[in-house]
C-alpha cells in the first residue's frame, strides 16, 4: 500500500511547528499506526534525516503513552481503540494521512508528536494517595463490597490516562479523565474516607488547567478504555456532594 503521511515536526517546545510530507510505498494493511511510524523513521534514518519523535511503550493498549491525532481524530479513525491498536487497513491505497500530536492548550508539544501530559498527573496528585491508615491487611470479606460496585469501580479504573479525551474535546476539558478517577475511587471502601476532600482538590486542579464541559460527547468516542460518558456527570456529582458537606469533613 502507498500512503502519503503529513507528519507534524517541531524541534522543541518554543520552536515553530510544521507538517512535513513523506511517502510510504510499502505499508501493509496489518501494520499498526505505530509500526507505520517505525517504517517512516526507518526510511528517514536511511536518508540521514531525524526520525519523528513519538511515544509508545506497551503497544497493546495498556500503558496510555501512544497518543497521536490521526486526521484530526485522537488515536485514529476507529472509535475506542488506542493508536497502537489501530491499523493501516482503515486507510485506502494512496490516501493522505495527517499525523499530529494531541491538541490542547494544556498539552504543550515537547517535540514532534510528543506532548507534555503532566497536567493529568497534577490532577492525580491533587487527589493524593489514599492516606488512610488501614492497619494490617484485613481478613477476606470483612470489608464488604458488592459485586456491582466492584465491577463498576473496575470499569472506571480502566482509564489508561492517555489524554485522548482532552484532545478530542472541542473545549479542551478533562472531565472524562477526572470523572473516571472520582467514579472509581468513590466506590472503594478504604478510599471513601477521603471522598469529598479528594473531589474538592481534584476538581479544583482540573479547572485550573483544563476547559469546561459542554456535554458534547467526543471524549467517550475517542477513549481507548471505553470510559462511558457517565464519567463526566460523576465530576459534577462528586463536586456537588462535596459542596454540600462541611469543609472539615474529609469523607
Amino acid at each position: 500500500m502507498r500512503l502519503i503521511l503529513e507528519v507534524w515536526r517541531q524541534d522543541g517546545p518554543q520552536a515553530q511547528g510544521r507538517f512535513e510530507t513523506h511517502e510510504i510505498t510499502d505499508a501493509t494493511p496489518e501494520m499498526s499506526l505505530l509500526e507505520l511510524l517505525d517504517r517512516l523513521n526507518h526510511q528517514l534514518v536511511e536518508q540521514d534525516q531525524d526520525p519523528v519523535a513519538f511515544e509508545s511503550d506497551c503497544r497493546e493498549g495498556i500503558c496510555g503513552t501512544c497518543g497521536i491525532d490521526i486526521n484530526g481524530v485522537p488515536h485514529g479513525p476507529e472509535d475506542n481503540v488506542p493508536a497502537c491498536g489501530q491499523h493501516v487497513r482503515s486507510f485506502h491505497d494512496g490516501q493522505t494521512v495527517r499525523i499530529a500530536p494531541f491538541r490542547a492548550k494544556s498539552f504543550p508539544v515537547i517535540r514532534d508528536l510528543i506532548v507534555d501530559r503532566t497536567g493529568l498527573d497534577r490532577i492525580i496528585q491533587a487527589g493524593g494517595t489514599v492516606a488512610v491508615d488501614a492497619g494490617t491487611a484485613p481478613d477476606a470479606d470483612t470489608i464488604r463490597i458488592t459485586h456491582h460496585d466492584a465491577e463498576e469501580a473496575l470499569d472506571f479504573a480502566a482509564c489508561i490516562g492517555c489524554g485522548a479525551c482532552v484532545s478530542a474535546c472541542p473545549n479542551g476539558a478533562a472531565y472524562l479523565f477526572t470523572g473516571a478517577k472520582l467514579a472509581h475511587l468513590r466506590l472503594i471502601p478504604a478510599a471513601q474516607q477521603e471522598r469529598s476532600k479528594r473531589a474538592r482538590s481534584m476538581v479544583a486542579q482540573m479547572e485550573q488547567e483544563f476547559g469546561p464541559c459542554s456535554q458534547i460527547g467526543e471524549c467517550a468516542l475517542a477513549c481507548p478504555a471505553k470510559i462511558p460518558l457517565r464519567a463526566i456527570a460523576a465530576v459534577n456529582r462528586e463536586r456537588i456532594r462535596a459542596g454540600f458537606r462541611s469543609r472539615s469533613k474529609e469523607n
Binding site: 472541542p170 473545549n171 469546561p212
Partner: peptide
C-alpha cells in the same frame, strides 16, 4: 464557558 473553552482548546481546530 465559551471563552474558557476557547482558551483551553489552545487555538487548535476540531473537525
Amino acid at each position: 464557558i465559551f471563552f474558557r473553552a476557547r482558551v483551553a482548546r489552545g487555538g487548535f481546530g476540531r473537525a
